[in-house]
Each structure stands twice: as structure tokens, then as C-alpha cells.
Nucleic acid binder design. Sequence first.
RNA 1: GCCGAAGUGGUGAAAUUGGCAAACACGCAAGAUUUAGGAUCUUGUGCCUCACGGUUUGUGGGUUCGAGUCCCACCUUCGGCACCA
Length: 795
Amino acid sequence: MAEQEKKYEPNKIEPKWQKYWEKEGLNRAKDFDKNPAQSATHNEAGRPKFYCLDMFPYPSGAGLHVGHPKGYTATDIISRYKRMNGFNVFHPIGWDAFGLPAENYAIKTKVHPNESTHKNIAHFKEQIKSLGFSYDWEREIDTSSPEYYKWTQWFFLFLYKNGWAYKAKAAVNWCDSCQTVLANEQAQDGKCERCSSNVLQKDLEQWFFKITDFSEELLAGLDKIDWPEPIKIMQKNWIGKSEGYEIDFNIKNSVTKLADRHSLLQIRVFTTRIDTIFGCTYLVIAPEHEIAKNQELGIKNYEEVKDYVETAKKKSERDRQADVKDKTGVKLEGVTAINPANGKEIPIFVADYVLSSYGTGAIMAVPAQDERDFEFAKKFNLPIVEVPNSMEMAEKGIAKKKINYRLRDWLVSRQRYWGAPIPIVYCEKCGEQAVPEKDLPVLLPTDVDFMPTGESPLVKSKEFHKVKCPKCGGPARRESDTMDTFVCSSWYFFRYLDHKNKNEFADKKLIDYWLPVDLYVGGAEHAVLHLLYARFFAKALKRISLIGFDEPFLKLRNVGLILAEGGVKMSKSKGNVINPDDIVKEYGADTLRIYEMFMGPFDQAIAWDTKGVGGARRFLDRIYKLKERVSAKSSNLELEKAVNKIIKKVGEDIEQMKFNTAISSLMILLNEMEGEEEISGDIFERFLLLLAPFAPHIAEELYEGFKIQDSRFKNGSIFEQEWPKYDTALLKEEKVNIVVQISGKARGVVEVETGASEQEVLDIVKADSKINKWIEGQNIKKVIFIQNKLINLVL
RNA sequence: GCCGAAGUGGUGAAAUUGGCAAACACGCAAGAUUUAGGAUCUUGUGCCUCACGGUUUGUGGGUUCGAGUCCCACCUUCGGCACCA
């Protein structure tokens, strides 16, 4: 036994082993692992790769939340387990470092976001390191560094050159009091997150990514990835595919007014229910529809219609949604359409319950079939006609098949400072020009004022706009908006592979070797944001054949929230935030890890319970104490069987991310070992190996204590050892307990030889005095026998 | 409103997938030890009953020898979407 403390003191042993692992490079991933290592599990082709990824954190000023280590512990357990099973594991970490909080902080305190962000990163890094996660720190990335965002800009240009990035006018969230545009996340419930004033809609020129060009692939790809079903369903709904028909309604007499067009003026509608067209008694167009603005059409109440359109435009998206029940609209007087199914003349309305951004911005209203149309028809006293189902229009080819998606293009412009500048310049002569790749990165200027004025802070930087047109060399001006931070995080898992590469975002060979990601763990809140965007990026790269796969994350698992005691969200204002540093200081990192994994099912939201932390610590204390009883004696059969069973169980549970039950089996094994005066080194060694992924520091410490004098404990780190194997023969019991039911009611248990026959069991049951009293003097009508499990006597 | 997930002791939960419900842990109670303890150890602990025994997985029904698990209806809680024609 090496010289070791009698008492378990995690604060002494944890930093020691963290330094050791880093010094020995045990957490390093090996690119192209072709050299067979010493171990028999490593074959000629090298170890199989395993890319284990966490959603990288935003380094907020608040520091690490106890929720972070929950996900990180899970991936760490799996990474360590996979390494012990002969895998070449890639387990990186980095910083999603651009974003609004740093900028808001700068507005308040004048501290430059670069400064505060790097301070936060240093703090996060220290906190994360104190928990003993086996990250390959050599691969660390920071999305706010020019070396990184150079390639974020490269991706912008890549999309631009392929026609997947374009500029267009769009309505955005606008806060009048802060004089700034807000992201959707900042405009929740229609209120500004900072000043609580109402958010308005404003039309601005914005950059978009054409994610809609990939709608069908984004939908179809979901079928081939191992993701939680609810997340898949959310993405499916978000993409919102619907198959229907488009059909044109002629506007009556419009031909005379617009004779030069050689045709009738028409309104095209989209419907998923072409069969109900006979019940269509009016048309409705969105306020933005061009027909509503057509002055030559002879709309008699043109002023009234114009008023309605103006009012609708001023309403925020939220206000429009608030009026779901009370539908408004105006009839276009003097203008009617012809229902092509029955030739009937029907009125046309403009109403804001029809969206301009979906379908054709016009609908055929079938009040007998559609609830919304029904409400509108009731309010405006329109005829409600029962529907004779008919596919006539479709069959005749008058209605054309059409697929629509709810997915919209991704608005990526942000009028903010702390983000990656959009690499575009505007020339007076040549117009919009892409910054040549060789001129990347477009650096964020430092001479800016963060006070919000309604324009991007970059507008006023003098340095930033000293630029010439890349085409004609004439005077030009840079785009002053930055990119949504979700652009940075859509490709970061590529950059880990090759974060120092100056010529490419990542080397193709490295991409081919490591990607796609084998396991991705993070919160469900990114269901339709980051996870959809990252899939889009991969699909765009694949379509241009830059990579060989189109689904970046093969397996996704969600980490459940950790709530405050009492089940509410942790928040500064409520003063119920648990700081992981305090837990590490008081109980140790291993305790925090064990506790968070033992709390309950991994993907479930569970409230913090400080008493439970004490229980996790007691578990480790007892293990530490047990080392005194480890002896040279050979193992006893009962314990040997128990160890075999638990090796199987822990391995299976880790694979299925059932960490809570894995730990509970380790506790059961500990309880059994504690029942022995002496514990064989054979048993204890394997127990430590099983414990190691969960509580790496204490496992390494105890392993070290034995390996010096007990040959069963091999040299080197515990993490260089192989995961223990179990003996199938030992899993079988010679005797089993059989449940005895009388008429379906459990009345007792008998012990029989494994594999005993029905007759044998029946004889034993009849001889059992306790059970026999239930059968005495009665007829057994039927016997149900399940070998090694149960016998049911039906009387 | 629509979509999704979940309802099991005082608490977090477990249940080999249809076979002794409540493993493991927290809490609680009693005891041991200690000058003392919120440290440690032992025992007990779903509910009713002195007991024999009865009874229990949101509610009501069903299938089955047997249901926490399968089927039908309903209730509640949480998450997402929200006029997408």
C-alpha cells in the first residue's frame, strides 16, 4: 500500500490527477490512428474513432451553471468508457463567444466585449477544468477570434457564391426606446428584453440564408439519424411540409380594364383541400397582396381597403396573433372572382388572418370545412355551403399539384457589434461585391461606440470603411451588419478537427476521418435553431461535394435541466442559484459528478437537492474507507458473481446513458463488499475500473495506491487499462427463486434448481407448508409455468 | 386550439419490457458510539391492521391465469408551435 491519506480529501487528490492526465496527454485525440497500440483490442487498422461532442457553452459573466456539468459529465463518462474499450476518442471543447450579453455589458460598463468575454472564458475554463473532464484542450476554439471568424466569413461567401445568401427587405423586430433591432430571442412575448417596451415591426434590408432550398432534405434526413423522437417531430413541424394544389380564380370583368395583358387578372390560391372547392364562397387575400393595391381594378372602396392594409402593416406580428378569435377584414367592393368549379361569382376580402409569407398569400375560403373561414363567414354574413367532395379540378388539370413548406429563410443580419462582420462591400459603381477570400478575415474594428443609436455600431467606425471595391478599385463601403451568432455555431464541430489550419476551415482528410459526430449531447432548447442550422450547413457543403456526408450528428441526446430546490428555475433574482465551485470546494468534483448522474434519468428535468449531494459524497467516503480491507486473499464466489453481473450492467447502462442505474449498481456492489471482512484485490480492481468513468479522481487515486505492490493492478493510469470483461458462465445461477401464484395472486417464493421442470416445481410447491395451505382441499384447474420465473396455479 | 412528453411512497426514482411494485438514494424513526453533533454505524420505514391478513402505480373501463407495463375513454402537469389554408 502506497503512502496515502487515511481520510478521503478530494481537494488534495483532484487537482493532482487533473495535472497528471494533462501532462501525460491521456485525453488527446490521435488523428489517423493507424499505429496499432500495445493492447490486444487495437487491431491493424488502428482504433475505431469516436467523436463525442458537447454543445459548446456561451461564456457568460455569471460563470458555470450546475446544469453545464450535467451534460459534460455524461460525455466524459462515455469518452472515458470508450477509451477504455479501445476507441480513439475525440472530445473537444470551445467557446461560443460572440453574442449580445457581452455587448450589453459594454454599454453599461464601457468594458470592451473582447475584454469581458476573455475574462469570462478564463473563468469558465478554470471551472470546467476543476471538474476533471477529459477534454482535448489542445483543440480549444473561440468563435470570437479572427482565426475562427475568418472561416465563419468564408462560409458566408461559400453560401453567397452558390446563391444561398441573398439580401432582401424584411420586417424585423424593432425596439423604439433602445433604438435597435432585436433578435427573436430578445423579443419574446412581443416585449424588449431590456426595457420591456413593445416591439414593433420594421422593414429593413437584411441578409438571408436560403435554408428553404434544403427543406426536403432537412425533412428526409431526419429518418436516418438517431435523435430523440420529440426533437425530430419539432423539426418536422417547423419545416411544415404540406402537399396541396394551386388554382387560379379569374377576377370578373378585369379583362376589359387590362386588355393589353391579353388575359384575365387572376388570383392564385393554395389549398390542401381542392376537393372542397365547391364549398368555396369567397376569396381572402393577405394585406400585402398586390391585388389590394391595384388601382386600375376599380375597387370602389379603395380608400377603406388602403386604410385596412396600412393598419395591418403597423400591427406587430404579435398583435395580429392576439386577434385569432376576432377576425377583421374588408370586402373589395365592386370586384368579384369566379369560382372555377361552379362558375359562381364570389366576393373577395382582404384580411390579416391570411399570411402573405405562406403559399400564394391568398386563399379560397370554405366556411363549411374550415374553422377560421367559418368564423369569418359568420361575422361578415357570408354563405356557408355544404361541401360535395370532388377531385374534378385536380383530375382535369385545372388545379396544379404544389408542395409548400412553413420553413422560412434564415435572417442572419444583426445590427450589432459583437459578431462576425458580413464580408460584403458596396461599391458606388459595381454595387454589392463579395470580399475576396484572400482578404479575409474582415476584422472587427475597435474604434466603435456601443451606445445604441438604431444603426449597427460598425457604421460609425472610420477605420472599418476605408475599403476599395474589389472589382473596380473605386470607393466602396463595407456592410456594417454582423452575423447572427448561430452562424458561428453552425460549423464549429468542423473547426475542432483542424483549428490552426490557415488554408481551409478544416482538412478534408481530417473531416473524412473524424466526422460525422458519433454522439452529440446538449439541451433540447436548440431543437429548431442550432440543430437545424448545423444540418443545413452540412447539406450545403455536401451538395457542392466538399464533404462526404450530409447529417453532421448521427446520435443526439438531450440533457435535462437542473432546477432549483422546489422545482423552479434557478435565477439570480430568486437567489436560488447553486454555484458548482461551492460544491467542488465542499464535496469535491467526483461527488458533484456522481450526484448529477445519480439524480434521475439523464434527459429529465430534476430539482437540485443538497441533501442528495451528501449521499453521493458518503458513497465515495465509503469506497475510500474500504481500501483498508483489500487483501491478498482470493475472491469469494458470491462476490465474483456479483462483480460479473455488475460489469455487464454498468457497460449496458453507459451505452444507453442510464447513468443513474449504473451508479445504483455500483452502490449495490459496494454494499456487498462492505459485508466482507476482507476484499480480494481482484474484486476491488474491477470495481475501481467500473467506477473510473464516473468518479475519475478517486478511482485513479485508489488504483495508484495498489498498483505499486499488488501485481493485479497494472502500471500506468487506470484510464490506460482495459474495461473489465464479464464471464457469461458466472452470470448463470444454479438456483433460482420462483414466484408462486395462486389464481394470479402472489403467495410465496420457492427456491429451485435452475431449469427445473414444471412437475419438479409443482412437487416442491406442494411440499411447501406455507403455500400448501392455499391449495389444500381445492382443485387445480390449470397450471401456468414459466421456467425459472413463475408458477401460477389456477384453482 | 394543434403537436409532444410525463403522472409510481414523505422526496428523487427503479422495475430484466406482461411475471413478488417500490431496487438504489434522500428524508424520517429508534438504537449504538462520542464531551457533543447537522460526523459515523446498526435496525426499521408504501398505506390500513395489535395481528391473521387486506390493499396500493392520476381516474374509469377492457384484454389476460397474471397489467405500472397492452387497448379504449377521461383528468392533471410540463415542453414546443401558434390563424401555415
